[in-house]
Structures are given as structure tokens and as C-alpha cells.
């Protein structure tokens, strides 16, 4: 699916996913569940692979607040607990927005975010309902 067909001017950060995922609309609650690792499989049973930027990256800070309506340190607490206490798996951190886009493109079941969807191809853009 190509982007641009979804009106996204209200936000400075867009949620994207691998084309294999057939869930083009998510609620904020669903997105939160996915990013806090409380939902780890899509409706079709495929495992969700969650990608993020480093915790101090400005785009990550914006994504947390605008899209998840959470503060980045809340995510840190949840992810650190999963990663360093053996309870589960946290999102995979990549270094740059370009790496993040590439990772979502090539990983079936992946979800991530980009600053702008202009010129971005080969990923689905997710519409977020509040």
C-alpha cells in the first residue's frame, strides 16, 4: 500500500507497519498495548516485532507523547523490566530513522514510526483512532 492516501498532517510522527499486516487501523489503546508489549501477536497469530529509536531521540520522544500518550520514562520502566528481569522481550532499538524504516520494511509483522510518510514506500501507514 502506498502512503499519501491517508491524511496525516495533524501529527509530526506516523505509525507504519510491514505490508503483511492487515490491520490498517488501530486505536490508541491497541497501539499502547503493542508498545508496552501487552499484545505480542496480531489478530492472525503472527508475532509483532516492535521497533523504536534510542530513548533520547527526539522522534521517539514525540512518538511517545503524541501517539502513545505516554511519557518516555514510563516506556523505559516497562521495557527495562522485561529485558533485564527475564519476563519478556522489549522492542528492538535501532540507531536512526532510516534504519527503523528499513527494519519495518523487511520484517514481516513489524511495526514502527517515521517522521513523515512522504516518499515512503513498501510499508503500510496505520491510521490511529483515539
Amino acid at each position: 500500500m502506498f502512503l499519501g492516501c491517508i491524511n496525516s498532517t495533524a501529527y509530526a510522527v506516523e505509525v507504519i507497519m510491514h505490508p503483511s499486516v492487515s490491520e490498517p487501523i488501530l486505536t490508541t489503546s491497541q497501539l499502547r498495548r503493542i508498545y508496552t508489549m501487552r499484545q505480542i501477536q496480531w489478530a492472525d497469530g503472527r508475532r509483532i516485532t516492535v521497533y523504536v529509536l534510542p530513548r533520547q531521540h527526539l522522534l521517539h520522544l514525540r512518538f511517545s507523547k503524541e501517539r502513545l500518550q505516554m511519557f518516555p520514562y514510563q516506556l523505559d520502566r516497562i521495557w527495562n523490566k522485561l529485558t533485564y528481569s527475564g519476563l519478556g522481550v522489549a522492542p528492538i532499538t535501532v540507531s536512526t530513522p532510516e534504519d527503523l524504516l528499513e527494519a519495518v520494511r523487511k520484517t514481516p509483522g513489524a511495526i514502527g514510526y517515521v517522521e513523515s510518510v512522504q516518499g515512503v514506500e513498501a510499508v503500510n501507514v496505520v491510521k490511529i483512532k483515539s
Binding site: 527495562n80 533485564y84 528481569s85 519476563l87
Partner: peptide, 9 residues
């Protein structure tokens, strides 16, 4: 209790 040994957590 699960992060007591994790300095940054």
C-alpha cells in the same frame, strides 16, 4: 524487586 540489581532501572 526485579530491577534492584539493574543500576539504571
Amino acid at each position: 524487586s526485579s530491577s534492584r540489581d539493574i543500576p539504571f532501572a
